[in-house]
């Protein structure tokens, strides 16, 4: 589904992704963790080319992303992206946020798109918030609308960049619950997160990044119980004591 072959990226002189090799299969849930600045966001932002890279190959659902002539809008419609800061459209209601892309990209009739949007909002537990504007919603509710917005396109892949990091602690659970449900339904997911409970519960694989390299990868149980590298061990002890 997603295949990195020796991907390298630089921001100016800063080498942020170093020879990344990674293969994510259909239906797999991968959690990416690592210290701040290690390149986690950059890695998953490459998957829908919010970031370009300079060297290597990346195939997503068969589409070559290293080939800059590929039609991106078509691929992006198949990939949902959930941001740390939600990025809901503030001038639209929750319903309009969710229905916008189905109407304009999938060319659905407005009534059909709104029915679909209601269904997705219901799925994230916000059936009663359809007419609310983002400013009238709590952080956790906003993030769930953002997830519904992604799901409305029936994506093949969902990408999450620290979806709970901007939330008050009491709201983290409601967002993770939605993500756990999604994972159990077989969605292909790449999730940058430090929520180890989530990783343990649903991840098939945990990937540890440090200074732009993919340092360690393993199933969640092994990774947390006996990390193979010192850097991973240090990182785990740090997040556990927090």
């Amino acid at each position: 589904m997603i295949k990195f072959n020796g991907v390298n990226k630089w921001f100016g002189k800063l080498h942020v992704l170093k020879d990344i090799d990674l293969h994510v299969t259909s239906g797999e849930v991968v959690v990416v963790c690592g210290p701040s600045g290690s390149g986690k966001s950059t890695l998953i932002r490459c998957i829908n080319r919010l970031e370009k890279f300079q060297k290597g190959e990346l195939f997503v659902d068969g589409t070559p992303l290293h080939d800059y002539s590929t039609n991106l809008t078509k691929l992006r419609a198949e990939i949902g992206f959930v941001f740390q800061q939600f990025h809901l459209y503030p001038h639209m209601t929750a319903l309009q946020n969710v229905a916008l892309a189905p109407i304009n990209v999938r060319k659905m009739k407005r009534a059909d798109a709104e029915a679909l949007a209601h269904e997705k909002l219901d799925r994230v537990g916000l059936a009663d918030k359809a007419d609310a504007h983002p400013t009238q919603l709590s952080g956790g509710q906003q993030q769930r609308v953002a997830i519904a917005r992604g799901l409305a396109m029936s994506p093949k892949i969902m990408l999450f960049d620290e979806p709970t990091s901007a939330l008050d602690p009491e709201m983290i659970g409601e967002v993770l619950d939605v993500m756990v449900k999604l994972a159990s339904e077989g969605m292909t997911m790449c999730v940058v997160t430090h929520e180890m409970g989530f990783a343990r519960q649903v991840a098939h694989r945990v990937i540890f990044m440090d200074e732009g390299s993919l340092v360690e990868t393993g199933n969640p149980h092994d990774f947390f119980a006996n990390p193979q590298t010192d850097r991973a061990a240090q990182f785990i002890s740090k997040i556990l004591t927090h």
């Binding site: 829908n48 990025h87 916008l100």
Partner: peptide, 20 residues
Amino acid sequence: GQWEAASSSGLNLYQQLRYV
């Protein structure tokens, strides 16, 4: 982030400008 959200959802450049 508004550009990123709009382009991530598959809107083309015109639609990103027009609606978002």
